[in-house]
Computed example of a mutant assay.
Amino acid sequence: MSQATGAVADGDRGGSQRLRLLLLANPHASTTDDAVQRRVTTALCRRHAVEAVRTGHKGHAIELSRAAAAEGFDAVVALGGDGTINEAANGLVGTRTALAPLPGGATNVYCRMLGLPSDLAAACAMLGGREHHVVRADVGRVNDRWFTFAAGVGLDASAVERVDRRPRIKARWGKWFFASMGLSVFLGDYVTDPVRMEVETAESRHEAVTVLMQNGSAYTYFGERPIVLLPHGGLFSGDLGGVALRRAKVRDLAPVLWRALSARRPVTGHPAVRALETGDGLVVRTRDERLLPIQVDGDNIGRHSEARFAVAPGALRVLRGGTQPPPGVTR
């Protein structure tokens, strides 16, 4: 990669400024291929200087983003799914180089939370236009890995493990494959012998079988429907929120799912679910010597004996095209 000039300033609204961008394209993302990468590069090159690189292995986007920040690029454009965006963010947290996500995956949770169009061409047009905003977004951390919108310990992480073993089916069936794996894990493993964990906060200590933390306004999406576990201020609130699943019983499955998908009644109103009003400093430990499966932004990061959560308010600079800042920006 060639040398670049300094980064854009916080709150900058663009104009005639020509930015130096590194485009990271994940060729394995569900809606990204060589033709898509060329179209995106062409669209961005009309106003900005763009270097395009394809990711080649797990963790590659972290390495490339970290190098781009060291070389002074204005922003890293992450073209892929939420896993690609997560890796790019992990290379950019705390640096002057901004993250510019584009919707190149199946769900595109982070892009939705930033108010970006789900259509890739429209999102490229925004980023390649005259106007842009640079804002500081919060990022959560579990152990040594940052996450942009959500992280889970237990049931959903186990489902992610299984989904990742079959990337072709994942790409084809998306949310339906994940839902089927989640149901399979719940009925096959968690109902009979769930991983036992202890959740410790500054105020309490209690048992659980799954912990789900959200940094954004929703935990994830199922199709167009947001799944909100706990009302939360979103990417710019300065805190994390989440829930702990106290038990894994078949009788709880339907009512908890109904609450999560309908939003008519809060998930935390069900007796099997405990609200975790703050996630900063929360620690989850194994109680039965089995390692805990952990996922960040839908990306499996393996099994660990404990999960330590923290939040870094405003630690990630985010570049978003358009005349309006992202939803929820207060600083």
Rank of each mutant, 00 (worst) to 15 (best):
Q37I: 08
A315H: 04
L92C: 09
F236D: 08
G6N: 13
T220K: 07
V296H: 05
R112F: 09
L21M: 06
V296I: 14
A208K: 11
R251T: 15
L155N: 03
L245V: 15
S204H: 14
A43C: 14
L291K: 12
I62V: 15
H132N: 03
T330S: 14
R303S: 12
V50R: 08
G83L: 00
T323M: 07
L21E: 07
P313F: 02
L187Y: 03
S30P: 02
G56M: 09
G269E: 11
A179N: 04
G11T: 13
L22M: 01
R130D: 15
M126G: 11
G216L: 03
L240R: 03
R259C: 00
E277C: 06
E131D: 14
R247W: 06
R46Y: 01
L102M: 08
E51M: 02
R225P: 00
A35R: 13
N26V: 10
A100D: 07
T31C: 09
G234Q: 04
Q3C: 10
A202S: 13
Y110L: 13
D299M: 07
A208R: 07
S184M: 13
G128Q: 11
E71H: 15
T323F: 03
C124D: 02
R54D: 12
Y221I: 04
L120K: 04
L187I: 11
A260P: 02
V211N: 13
D239Y: 11
A7K: 00
H206L: 13
K175A: 15
S118T: 03
S2I: 14
A202D: 12
T84R: 07
D144Y: 09
G104V: 03
T5L: 12
P271F: 06
T192A: 14
L120W: 07
A159R: 06
T41N: 09
G72A: 00
P226W: 02
D74L: 01
G129W: 02
R265I: 01
P231C: 01
V134M: 03
R287T: 13
V142M: 03
V191E: 03
G233F: 10
T55Q: 04
V53E: 11
A52P: 05
A75S: 09
L127S: 01
A75F: 12
L253V: 15
L102F: 10
D12A: 14
L116I: 02
A35P: 00
P326W: 02
D34L: 10
I62R: 12
P103S: 09
S2G: 14
D82S: 05
W176L: 15
E87A: 03
G80H: 08
A106K: 12
R320A: 12
G152N: 10
L276S: 05
L102G: 00
V195T: 13
A100F: 08
R165T: 12
E203D: 15
S30T: 14
T5P: 05
R141V: 14
I294R: 02
T220A: 13
A67S: 15
A218Y: 05
E207P: 05
A69L: 00
S237Q: 12
A125P: 06
L183V: 15
G216T: 10
R162A: 14
A202G: 08
G328Q: 11
V284P: 02
A159L: 07
D280E: 10
P103A: 01
L64Y: 01
P103T: 08
V284K: 09
V273H: 06
T192H: 15
L235M: 06
I62F: 09
